[in-house]
């Protein structure tokens, strides 16, 4: 009995730093938000209980729903651009190829740099007046674009997100591809299957489970990213690139972005809860649909 107790005590001692940090910085904030979403709390003074007021406000907040819509556009655009390119690169690099490691190193490189730092660099590149990209376009005799204007700002944000994401997903796809046994391809080749046929009939189905995990990661990270946009456009011009988590940031820490909004923690808590639910629901629906699709195939 005594020995068992010592065994447990040791285990608790070892996990305690991790558990204390997880509770304090992970679980406590969730409980905190669950409380404050029912309060009117501006970050100073007393918090007053307002019941479901913050939730009623959610539905009236058109700016929030615009931001949610922008997030879908951003996430959809980023995934449409990133995933096919990343998969194609992975499939090519999975074969025998000269300079394979060097190319892999180059494609992955953008992912090692800070999103915020790169957003500063991209600001200088995409700036409409004297931006480096427009300078290059001028030198080449091509028309210039207002990359950060209302019309193209979202496209620019998507391009930048794809720039930072392609290498990461390429590597994840490569990991999945390496799990497919080589002899499957060899026998298909003997049977005369072409490259495209091999891709659709072997690569995609056999990538299945890994593909699901990658898609889930891609959905979650695309819906939750805002750092690059915050530094690049701050959500502007006139809300064109306002994504939902950036809006949440402004509700909670308005000072740092020079926003004229007032800090609103009670409402921010309700917004955070809604956003977590949206991301959870979308990944849940995706998993459900993909499982159904898998059932059809097998």
């Amino acid at each position: 009995m005594n020995r068992k107790w010592k065994h447990h005590a040791e285990a608790y001692l070892y996990i305690s730093p991790s558990v204390i940090l997880t509770v304090a910085l992970g679980i406590y904030p969730i409980l905190w938000a669950l409380r404050y979403m029912f309060y009117d709390y501006k970050g100073y003074g007393e918090a007053t209980f307002v019941g479901l007021y913050n939730f009623r406000r959610l539905f009236r907040d058109e700016y929030l729903w615009d931001a949610i819509w922008n997030t879908f556009v951003f996430a959809g655009g980023k995934m449409l651009l990133t995933l096919p390119v990343a998969l194609l690169l992975a499939v090519i690099l999975n074969g025998k190829l000269k300079g394979r490691n060097l190319l892999r190193g180059i494609y992955f490189m953008p992912t090692i740099f800070s999103t915020a730092v790169m957003a500063v660099v991209f600001y200088i590149i995409f700036n409409t007046y004297n931006g480096l990209l427009n300078q290059l376009l001028k030198l080449a005799g091509l028309p210039t674009l207002e990359w950060l204007g209302t019309e193209y700002a979202m496209l620019t944000c998507i391009l930048i997100a794809a720039w930072g994401g392609i290498g990461n997903y390429m590597l994840l796809f490569l990991a999945g591809l390496q799990g497919i046994p080589k002899d499957v391809y060899e026998s298909a080749e003997l049977d005369g299957a072409t490259g495209a046929r091999r891709f659709w009939s072997i690569t995609i189905p056999m990538l299945g489970p890994v593909l699901n995990i990658i898609m889930m990661l891609a959905i979650m990270s695309a819906l939750e990213s805002y750092e690059a946009i915050m530094v690049l456009t701050g959500g502007g011009p006139s809300g064109a690139t306002e994504v939902m988590h950036l809006y949440l940031y402004k509700l909670l820490f308005p000072v740092s972005t020079g926003e004229s909004m007032a800090q609103d923690i009670g409402y921010g808590s309700a917004v955070a809860m809604l956003l977590a639910l949206i991301v959870g629901a979308i990944t849940g629906i995706y998993l459900y649909l993909s499982r159904k699709l898998n059932d059809v195939h097998s």
């Binding site: 304090a24 910085l25 904030p29 938000a33 939750e224 988590h245 921010g268 977590a276 959870g280």
Partner: peptide, 13 residues
Amino acid sequence: MFIHMGVLTLKPA
């Protein structure tokens, strides 16, 4: 790993 409250967690922290 699946519950993300975004920047909200930084306020109570």
